[in-house]
Design a protein around this nucleic acid. Structure first.
Lengths: 199, 199
DNA sequence: GCGCTTGTTGACCCTCGGTCGATAGTGACC
DNA sequence: GGTCACTATCGACCGAGGGTCAACAAGCGC
C-alpha cells in the first residue's frame, strides 16, 4: 500500500501566512460571529486544533487579520510630508476614501462586527488614536480639550458619513472628501481653534 | 414537616417588571456578553427556564431593557415645539448631555456592547434615525444627499465627543453642548446647507 | 534506513443559548 | 377548610461553539 500522506506539513511562516490570507478573505465576506473556528479550519483544510496552535483564540485570529489590513490602510493614508498640511490632509483623506471604495464589503463588515469583539474595538481605537495624533500634530501641537474632543468626534463623524455613503452611494468621492474637510474645519472652529503658522 | 414553599409565585406583570428593572441595573454595569442568561437568572433568583418563559431570547431581553431606557431618553430630549428651532435644538442637546451625565456607566456600556447584538444595533439605529429625522424636519425638510450625510455623520460625532468627554471629563456640559452645536453648523455649512425661513 | 523534531490531529471538556415535560404555588369555588 | 384547575416555575436536557491535550506522523539530517 503506497498511501498518500494524511496531511501536508508546512513551515510555520507559510502556514501562518496562508491562514492570515484566508482570514482577510473570510472576514471581508462574513462578520466574525457568522464564522465558527471549526468552519474556518474546514475552509483552510486543517484541523481546528492547528488553528488554535497558531492563534491562541478566535479574537486573536480576528485581530491579527485586521492588523494586517490596518497596516495596509495606514500606509495608503500616510500623509505626504512634502505637502503643506492642508493639502496633505486632503490627499490623505482621498486615499482613505479610495481604500474604502476598494474594500466596501470589508469596511461594512468591520463596522458591523467592530464593537462585538473587544480586540477589534481596541484595534479600531488604536487606528483612530493614531490618526487623531497625526492630525493633531499637523493641526494643533498642543490642543485644548475642546480641540482634542473635536478631532476625536470628527473621526467618528467620518465613519458615520462613510457608512451613510456606502449605504446610499449618491455622492462621489470628492464630494464626500470636501464634506469631511468642511466638517473638520467647522468642528475645529467651533472648538475655538486657530490655524497655526504656515497653515 | 411544615416546609416552606420551593418558590414564590408572582403575577406575570410583577415578574416581568422585576426582570426589566434588574436588566436595567445589570446592563448598566456589565456589557451584554459579560452576562450569561444563567447568571442573570441566578441574580434574579429564578431558573433560567423562567427567564426564557418571559423573554424568547437573550437579545430580546436585552432589547426590552434598552427600549425602556431609550423611551426615557426620548422623552427627556423631546424638543419643545414652542421654541424656535435653534433654541429647541440647544435645549434638546442639553437634555441629552444631562441624561448622559446621569447614566455615564450605562452609556459607556451601551456604546461598548452596542453593535454586538443585532437587536441592540437596530435599536441604536432607530434612535439615531429618529433623532436625525427630527433634526432634518426642523433644519431641512427636503435634504440633499450631502446634508443628509452631514446630519448622520454629526450624530456619530456626537457619540464620539461624548465618549471623549466621559473619558477625560475636562469640559463642562455647556462647553460640550456648544462644541456640538458649532460642529453641526460647520458640517451643515460644508454640506451647502442654507438656513430655512424663520431660523 | 533510522531517529528526532515538531507540525498536525481526533477526541475530549466546558460554557452557554435555548427547549420541554413535569411539578407545585395559589386563587376560586364549594 | 378541602379540593380543583390554572399556570408560574423548575430541573434536566440538547446542540453548537470556543478551547485543550496527549499522541501521531511528515519530512529532514545523518
Amino acid at each position: 500500500m503506497n498511501r498518500e500522506p494524511a496531511y501536508t506539513r508546512l513551515s510555520v511562516e507559510e502556514r501562518r501566512r496562508r491562514l492570515l490570507e484566508l482570514g482577510a478573505d473570510l472576514f471581508a465576506r462574513h462578520s466574525i460571529d457568522e464564522l465558527s473556528m471549526a468552519a474556518i479550519a474546514r475552509e483552510a483544510g486543517i484541523s481546528k486544533a492547528l488553528l488554535y496552535h497558531y492563534f491562541p483564540s478566535k479574537a486573536d485570529y480576528f485581530e491579527a487579520t485586521l492588523r494586517a489590513a490596518a497596516e495596509d490602510l495606514r500606509l495608503r493614508t500616510e500623509p505626504d510630508p512634502d505637502l503643506p498640511p492642508a493639502e496633505a490632509l486632503a490627499a490623505s483623506l482621498d486615499a482613505f476614501l479610495g481604500w474604502i471604495e476598494d474594500n466596501r464589503l470589508a469596511y461594512s463588515k468591520l463596522m458591523q462586527s467592530a464593537t462585538s469583539v473587544g480586540e477589534a474595538r481596541t484595534l479600531i481605537s488604536q487606528v483612530r488614536e493614531g490618526t487623531a495624533q497625526r492630525l493633531l500634530d499637523g493641526l494643533a501641537p498642543d490642543p485644548s480639550p475642546k480641540v482634542r474632543a473635536a478631532v476625536h468626534g470628527w473621526l467618528w463623524l467620518m465613519d458615520g458619513v462613510c457608512v451613510d455613503w456606502l449605504e446610499h452611494r449618491d455622492m462621489d468621492r470628492t464630494e464626500v472628501r470636501d464634506l469631511l474637510l468642511g466638517a473638520l474645519l467647522g468642528a475645529l472652529t467651533a472648538a475655538g481653534w486657530q490655524p497655526p503658522d504656515g497653515f
